[in-house]
Structures are given as C-alpha cells and as structure tokens.
C-alpha cells in the first residue's frame, strides 16, 4: 500500500481521539495535531514495524508573530526502510510555551530541542539537559523570535575591555 495512505490510516486507527490536519504540498506529507500527543505519536511512528521512522532529521519551530498560537513546532523525521520523509507539526501558544520532549524517543532530538529552546524560548518538559545551545547562558533574549532585532540589543552581550 502507498505510504501516503497507509500512514494516515494507521494513525487514525491508533489514535481515534486525535484530530489530524493532513497536507501534502510538493510531495511532502505533513501532519498537524495537538501538542499533547507529540511523544505518543512519535514513539508509535518510530516503533511500528511497518513504518520505522528511526531517524529524526530535524526539529525546529516557526514564529508566526501575530497569530493566536504564536509558535509551531516542526519535526522532520525520516524512515530509512521506506525512504520516506514525514513532517509533524504542533501549535504552541506563547502563554503556555511548553512541549513534551521527544528526546526519550530519538536521542538525536536532545540537541535539536536545546537549539529550539535557545532560539525561540520554547521549554521542553522532561528534557535531560535543557540549556542554551549557542548563546551564552546569561543572555536573556531569544534571537529567532520576530520581535528580536537583527542587530541585537545593545549592551546585552558584554565585551572584554580594551
């Protein structure tokens, strides 16, 4: 069976309570669902013997700036068995800026989530080591948010004396 019909079918069977928003743009399948189910669905996709999404290519977030749900988490996962790339998305509101961590599912997610935390300030529950990835620990802002200016905030990062 074609994977593009198989995956939605399997997911709907397994998670009848979850609403899936499915899009297929430029041959790339995307699922959008509630952030509560992220870990369950990821674990299912990884462990199911017919799918085997064993590789977590990329985790990031999108800042929509003015929308109600300000952030969207994006998970790019890949099944080496089928050569198939799948994208999962979940909306995160700024008031409740937390998602469950998937680093228990894929260990590769550990740093990718840390990077997302560093750049967008989205916190990950149950993350083993949630620190900033790139910026110094004392830095207070989240650079990839749309309200952060490109040139930064003067004086926020110290320089050694001449």
């Amino acid at each position: 069976m074609d994977l593009k019909t198989l995956i939605p079918q399997k997911l709907k069977e397994k998670f009848p309570a979850v609403e899936f928003e499915i899009t297929d743009y430029k041959d790339e399948l995307t699922f959008k669902f509630d952030k509560k189910f992220v870990v369950e669905i990821c674990a299912f996709l990884k462990s199911d013997p017919e799918l085997e999404f064993k590789s977590c290519t990329d985790i990031t977030a999108i800042d929509w700036a003015t929308r109600k749900n300000r952030f969207t988490m994006v998970y790019n996962i890949f099944s080496m068995k089928h050569n198939f790339r799948l994208r999962l998305k979940a909306d995160v509101d700024e008031a409740d800026c937390k998602v469950d961590s998937v680093s228990s599912v894929w260990r590769a997610a550990n740093w990718q989530e840390r990077e997302t935390y560093d750049m967008y300030g989205i916190k990950f529950n149950n993350h083993p080591d949630l620190r900033r990835m790139y910026m110094p620990e004392e830095f207070e802002y989240y650079p990839l948010r749309k309200d952060f200016p490109l040139m930064g905030i003067p004086g926020s990062l110290p320089l050694p004396k001449k």
């Binding site: 750049m119 990835m133 790139y134 910026m135 110094p136 650079p143 990839l144 952060f148 490109l150």
Partner: peptide, 12 residues
C-alpha cells in the same frame, strides 16, 4: 559546548 561561532545565519 558550541556557539563560539554562532553567527546568526537563520536570523539573517
């Protein structure tokens, strides 16, 4: 520990 060459590419 990374970030000593973080140049902000995605923001740019």
């Amino acid at each position: 520990e990374l970030g000593y060459l973080h140049r902000g590419y995605e923001k740019m």
